[in-house]
């Protein structure tokens, strides 16, 4: 099996704070891997280390076999990055942003222009190619960032909370783009704290909390381990959650309760609750 992303006991400390703690991760070529966890869990730090923007305190990380610390230039050549903040250049046009990216990645003019045209069509920004990016909405900037990250045809695409702050419609549009990118052959490493995003998009999900990887599997298997059905009991203390494998058991429990209850299918947030006792959003 070919691992396009691999970490060995990766750790990052900021003074006395441990952002990542002995992280062992392996992402297979061609998959959409979701890195799910609450804010501050260590997702972005992991992503920054993997994309060579932050140096780890200890441990090693490899992209396409290249060590991100010892061989950063080669590691960077095969990856595309969409950070969580909007960092397209507002003083350049959409076309110029992509041209700059192509030049930085050493693309020849003919290939660069062909890819720019194709990707501006792909993210539906062809009609704004000559507009200054400072005039773009957040969603348009995000789509341009995705086009930019794909320009040099990376083997692996890092998307760090790439739908934060976007409306539901734009978010779904970007999900569609991510699926198409993956279908065209790119491996996708997606960090998110949106449960639905991880469930809808990812082939496998890694759950991280306080810098530790606490579970890795397909969403289906993670849900099976937790129980397919959930009964939430509402009370003044915030409520309790019970997990059931069978719908009948869940219904029976709900019917026998003398308090307000809600029965539903389980999701990845429930997996997180089962393991940590907390919600992803807490």
């Amino acid at each position: 099996m070919t691992y396009i992303i691999r970490t060995e006991r990766l750790a990052k400390e900021y003074g006395s704070i441990t952002a990542i703690d002995c992280l062992d991760l392996a992402v297979t070529e061609g998959e959409i891997f979701g890195f799910l966890g609450p804010n501050g869990a260590g997702k972005t730090t992991t992503c920054r280390i993997l994309t060579t923007l932050t140096k780890p305190t200890s441990g090693r990380a490899f992209i396409s076999g290249y060590d991100v610390v010892d061989d950063p230039v080669k590691a960077k050549g095969g990856m595309g990055i969409v950070p969580q903040y909007l960092n397209v250049d507002g003083e350049l046009t959409a076309y110029e942003n992509l041209k700059l990216h192509g030049m930085l990645y050493g693309m020849d003019r003919e290939t660069r222009n062909r890819r720019i045209k194709k990707l501006l069509d792909f993210v539906e920004l062809s009609d704004r190619a000559s507009s200054l990016v400072s005039t773009f909405s957040g969603g348009m900037k995000r789509r341009l960032m995705i086009a930019r990250a794909l320009l040099h045809e990376p083997k692996v695409l890092f998307l760090d909370e790439c739908t934060v702050g976007l409306d539901a419609q734009t978010r779904r549009r970007i999900w569609g783009l991510i699926r198409r990118i993956n279908q065209e052959g790119a491996t996708v490493f997606l960090t998110t704290h949106y449960i639905e995003e991880a469930e809808v998009l990812c082939h496998r999900v890694g759950i991280i909390d306080y810098g530790k990887l606490i579970a890795v599997d397909t969403p289906k298997r993670l849900l099976n381990q937790t129980g397919d059905f959930v009964v939430e009991t509402l009370d003044n203390d915030g409520g309790q959650v019970r997990f059931f494998q069978d719908k009948e058991d869940a219904a029976q429990f709900a019917a026998s309760s003398d308090r307000d209850v809600t029965m539903r299918k389980s999701n990845l947030e429930d997996v997180f609750i089962r393991i940590t006792g907390r919600r992803v959003s807490e």
């Binding site: 507002g90 700059l100 930085l104």
Partner: peptide, 14 residues
């Protein structure tokens, strides 16, 4: 502020 310098830092250039 703009975080655009990261575009250079994350590119395969020395």
């Amino acid at each position: 502020y703009w975080m655009t310098f990261e575009e250079f830092q994350s590119a395969p250039v020395s």
